[in-house]
């Protein structure tokens, strides 16, 4: 029981991070119908910026430092998201079907090795900053820990999600975003700047991925240039599981993937946990491609 609870806590934390990344996949897919394969790398860049910023701000008070790092990482990562779309995807609109995905794979490989080239292949550690937590439960010798950091991650995610949903649903930029998602041509005719809206989508997605990057840096205390590949795939799985194109779906999918991974690692074996994630991806796509909260797609004749 206690063990299960601990795994659930860990899974929820992990799942929040996946959920934040998954939103980027789901929004981009919703608006231009492509899998932004480089999104995992955007998240990795967010984490690297966080490492550099934490090192630079190490003599500031902790709360100030975290706030600054979050802001800094979001801005910088958003710039990367914007540039990736502008350079690698926008010129391909109207190209053949698979061109954007191939370009995205190229971008992903480029960014990974670009960061490796600039910052080296070795793991980059940051000192643990937020320590301690609550003891939730004691069962025999096993203590269930809920760390302050875990609380912070989950709360930050929830606040961001709420704010973000509010933004998409009520502001005029959010309305334009939803309009483009429905029908780009019509939106353009009605005076929506489609290019700008697509850019905005990438910027927002990258900003959220940056938050995930900062959180993961705090949580694990170490980052490397390869971090984005697996996390990206899992977050994509989360987006598909939740129903691609659906914001609550992305969050739900992220949390489910996090929980499944934590439980799998806790009860079976941690070596095989990636197989679990990939198997879910394959199974969902085969049996329920619209995901949990998505709408089914009809073959257009």
């Amino acid at each position: 029981m206690a063990y299960l609870l601990q795994q659930l806590i860990n899974g929820l934390t992990l799942g929040s991070i996946y959920g934040l990344i998954a939103i980027g996949y789901t929004m981009v897919y919703g608006i231009i119908g492509m899998i932004n394969f480089a999104h995992g790398e955007i998240y990795m860049i967010g984490a690297f910026v966080a490492v550099i910023a934490f090192t630079a701000f190490s003599n500031l008070p902790l709360v100030v430092a975290i706030m600054l790092v979050l802001l800094f990482s979001m801005v910088i990562t958003a710039a990367y998201g914007w540039t990736v779309e502008r350079v690698a995807y926008r010129p391909l609109r109207g190209s053949f079907r698979l061109a954007p995905l191939i370009s995205a794979i190229g971008m992903s490989i480029f960014l990974q090795n670009y960061v490796q080239l600039l910052q080296g292949a070795r793991n980059k550690p940051v000192p643990p900053m937020i320590q301690g937590g609550f003891t939730v439960m004691q069962e025999g010798t096993f203590t269930v820990q809920l760390s302050y950091l875990q609380i912070m991650i989950v709360v930050t995610t929830l606040v961001l999600m709420a704010g973000f949903t509010h933004f998409i649903n009520t502001t005029s930029l959010g309305r334009q975003q939803r309009a483009c998602e429905q029908d780009k041509t019509m939106a353009a005719l009605l005076g929506v700047n489609v290019d700008r809206t697509v850019s905005l989508t990438f910027v927002l997605g990258a900003g959220l991925a940056a938050v995930a990057g900062v959180m993961v840096t705090l949580y694990y205390g170490v980052v490397d240039f390869y971090l984005g590949f697996l996390a990206g795939l899992k977050a994509f799985t989360a987006a598909v599981l939740g129903g691609i194109g659906s914001l609550p779906g992305a969050m739900l999918g992220g949390i489910l993937i996090g929980l499944i991974e934590a439980l799998w690692a806790g009860y079976f074996s941690s070596e095989w946990k990636d197989v679990a994630a990939f198997s879910i991806l394959v199974l969902v796509l085969i049996f329920r491609p619209q995901g949990l909260l998505g709408r089914p797609e009809v073959e257009k004749v």
């Binding site: 190229g106 971008m107 992903s108 480029f110």
Partner: peptide
Amino acid sequence: FGAGLVMIMI
């Protein structure tokens, strides 16, 4: 290699 893949697509 990565940059080349993007450039070919463009």
